[in-house]
Write a protein that binds this DNA or RNA. Structure first.
Lengths: 209, 209
DNA sequence: AAGAATAAATACCTATAGGTACGATAATGA
DNA sequence: TCATTATCGTACCTATAGGTATTTATTCTT
């Protein structure tokens, strides 16, 4: 976490890696990863362009590093919730609270960087894309194991575990999309609550026809 | 629809508006609207750049026109289904069939241009954005009125009409996302079938806790 | 035949993206 | 003191984006 580990030799480093990383993450998150250039980051942080390239190799490297920061900041907490051993209904509530918490008061942009990057994946470099797929696979696995756990606890759904996980993933992505479009967190929470409880309903529902 | 309506004066038009429109639409749809340049379209169709600009004014104009084509080609059929007066369950099936039909055999790309444009909306010009919002609003209204109709027919859900419509919109977008990511249409249909039937279930479901 | 009107295409423009060459600078070790 | 090591930042490079000035070609009207 600290700036330098080895008491090094040459000219002391002035470049603030952490500042750049934070700024880049916020910019990507707010404006979308494809709408932020290295030049923007330089202007924003006062860093020189070669400095940024020295530190992160290239655009792809910076995006990848920012994405890693995002993972620990915004994805890991959700994984922790999904992997908790609390009853399913509590897990649902915790997940919904986390997803729909007020971003503004936390100084964090609306929406989800994963979702944005996925939507613009054709514009990403290879290492960012790799990282993105890794994180998304982890998240999907978390949904999958959540569903499996629910089944062990007696919750059944009509769908295969895999398909239920896909369904849950859709709800999450949908929530992030709604949030980004300015829909109130209360509305989003209502929709999510409905959608999640559906997936974990105990018995086959009474269907039309 | 025809090339020239008034038997006009000057040098006869060589530029094939329709070819450009079709090519542009397919390119946007396949690669994402931000990953296709006017130059690409020119190379693809053999048109000259000033020719394209004469016809569509600018990049924004071309994208807007392509989006209009998309609307009549891919959105209107869904609107027709949603506004049909068939029983809800039949409407559900029809919508799912339409959404998950095999694109390859129809010579049409996977995914949804509306969804892609929405995801990249910061990179769109004003008139394309306007058109996009118009079409999306129409689609949302269709979902909304579908839900209202279902309620008249005795189908109830826990959610307000507006929130149910948001939920349905999410399922549709989610389906398009899955399709674009290569998930089989059968799986998508299963997920959609589950999600839609949930929204239109007759009674409050048996919930956990 | 002489405009008037329209479309053609080459060759250009500006802005900005990602990326780097290179000389200057600041520390350490001998 | 002087090489060594490593970072600094100005000024540049190439590629490509959107967009256009200009000249030439082809038609209809008078």
């Amino acid at each position: 976490m600290s700036q330098n580990q080895t008491p090094l030799r040459g000219r002391p480093k002035k470049l603030d890696r952490n500042l750049i990383l934070q700024s880049a993450l916020m910019e990507y998150w707010t404006k979308g990863p494809s709408n932020v250039s290295i030049n923007d980051i330089c202007k924003l942080t006062g860093a020189s362009k070669p400095g940024v390239y020295r530190e992160f190799s290239n655009d792809d490297g910076l995006k990848k590093s920012a994405l890693e920061t995002y993972q620990t900041l915004a994805v890991q907490p959700l994984l922790d919730i999904l992997y908790s051993d609390k009853p399913i209904s509590e897990t649902i509530d915790a997940a919904i609270s986390f997803i729909t918490q007020d971003r503004k008061s936390m100084g964090v942009p609306n929406g989800c960087l994963l979702v944005m990057m996925t939507a613009q994946s054709e514009q990403l470099g290879s290492s960012t894309l790799e990282e993105l797929n890794r994180i998304r696979a982890n998240l999907f696995t978390a949904y999958f194991s959540w569903v499996k756990r629910a089944k062990l606890e007696g919750e059944l759904s009509d769908l295969e575990t895999n398909e239920t996980a896909l369904y849950l993933e859709n709800q999450h992505i949908g929530a992030m999309r709604m949030q980004r479009e300015g829909i109130s967190n209360e509305t989003i929470a209502n929709v999510l609550n409905f959608a999640f409880k559906m997936a974990f309903s105990k018995k086959p529902k009474l269907l039309l026809n």
